[in-house]
Amino acid sequence: MKYLVTGAAGFIGSAVVEKLTEAGNCIIGIDNINDYYDVKLKHARLDRIKNKNFSFIKLDIADRDAVQQLFIDEQFDRVIHLAAQAGIRYSIENPHAYADSNLIGYLNILEGCRHTNVGHLIYASSSSVYGLNAKTPFETSDRVDHPVSLYAATKKSNELMAHTYSHLYDIPTTGLRFFTVYGSWGRPDMAPFIFIKKILDGETIDINNNGDMWRDFTHVDDIVEGVVRIADVIPSKNTSWTVEQGSPATSSAPYAIYNIGHGSPINLMDFVKAIETELGIKAKKKFREMQPADVYQTYADVADLFEATGFKPSVDVKAGVTEFVKWYRDFYHK
């Protein structure tokens, strides 16, 4: 298969590229290498991919003409779209970055798929779309109409845009709602990375909502396995589906949505304790109130994913934290 992987220098994107090339697929990876966080880390992720089946192009998905030409030149079988302006709190500070990447850039990818008859578009959504949902676990059959951040709203928009293109142009699309991803080569703006860095540097870590928060921490290896497996599960039309009786995660169009999460949320303080144990260092903690655009709990129901692929995320927090800490110490010589 010939794949386009967007966000190829990213945390999840680079790992997906590595997995796909090892399986013998031909991959074109694109990324704009922006400076939202350390570009040296992004380049290091790309440098670790030593495979003749991988080619990298520096390209911004918001560049309509460049994206259009790429699709025409390369004629992809499948697209795994992971490029996005990430971060929930940053969307409060710089909302326009989210419109450029997550809306305009995403539309450019959809148009590329439409005009070159791509066989399957797999794209990253987010657990953040569940917003104010209080019922747990979060199921893809739940309504997701009340996001609490602009980032979440753009991800919900991506799902709606995908459905439109699936309906109008018969493009098979699959959205994947990722739950709190952590592990080797992780993002420096995310809490697990921040905790490890600050504890090792002797700095104080901020604990939101006074520690009373729950997250469905999911190791990157499980995320990547789910992405690669779901690429082979191409949604088809379901002529018996109706809005009134069907799940919003499926459709009469070739459209599907899945959660990818561990399926067993843990308390934030237990996650911090696992890091402390692995580092052998007690963290200095500052407890504070819930922050804007944050949510109390995330919890994935992954029954649909298992039914479709036979895969259920399995890396537990102890093993995942051990792996992450080892990588961090090795990479940063700590």
Rank of each mutant, 00 (worst) to 15 (best):
T174E: 12
T174Y: 14
T174A: 13
T174H: 08
G175I: 10
G175D: 12
G175L: 08
G175S: 07
G175K: 07
G175T: 12
L176A: 08
L176V: 07
L176W: 06
L176P: 03
R177A: 04
R177C: 09
R177G: 08
R177E: 04
F178Y: 14
F178W: 04
F178N: 09
F179K: 04
F179Q: 01
F179D: 00
F179M: 10
T180K: 05
T180V: 06
V181A: 14
V181H: 02
Y182G: 05
Y182C: 10
Y182D: 07
G183T: 00
G183K: 00
G183I: 01
G183Q: 01
G183L: 03
S184Q: 10
S184N: 06
W185N: 00
W185P: 00
W185M: 03
W185T: 03
W185I: 03
G186Y: 02
G186T: 08
G186C: 05
G186K: 03
G186V: 01
G186P: 06
G186S: 15
G186D: 15
R187A: 07
R187Y: 01
R187S: 11
R187D: 15
R187E: 14
P188S: 08
P188R: 00
P188V: 00
P188K: 00
D189W: 06
D189V: 05
D189L: 12
D189Q: 13
M190I: 06
M190G: 06
M190R: 15
M190C: 04
M190D: 10
M190W: 09
A191D: 08
A191W: 02
A191M: 10
A191V: 04
A191T: 11
P192W: 01
P192R: 09
P192I: 05
F193Y: 12
F193S: 00
F193I: 04
I194R: 07
I194V: 15
I194W: 00
I194C: 05
I194K: 01
I194G: 02
I194Q: 14
F195G: 02
F195E: 14
F195M: 15
F195L: 13
F195R: 04
I196D: 00
I196T: 10
I196K: 00
I196L: 02
I196S: 02
I196Y: 02
K197H: 14
K197E: 13
K197R: 15
K198F: 04
K198C: 10
K198V: 06
I199K: 08
I199E: 00
I199Y: 06
L200D: 11
L200Q: 13
L200E: 13
L200A: 09
L200K: 11
D201C: 09
D201Y: 05
D201T: 10
D201I: 03
D201R: 13
G202V: 14
G202M: 12
G202S: 12
G202P: 05
G202K: 07
G202R: 05
E203M: 08
E203R: 03
E203W: 02
E203Q: 14
T204P: 08
T204R: 09
T204I: 13
I205T: 05
I205H: 01
I205G: 03
I205N: 08
I205E: 06
I205Y: 06
I205W: 11
D206R: 10
D206G: 07
D206Q: 13
D206A: 10
D206Y: 05
D206T: 07
D206E: 15
I207D: 04
I207K: 05
I207G: 01
N208D: 12
N208L: 11
N208F: 14
N209F: 12
N209C: 09
N209E: 10
N209K: 12
N209W: 07
N209P: 08
N209Y: 11
N209G: 09
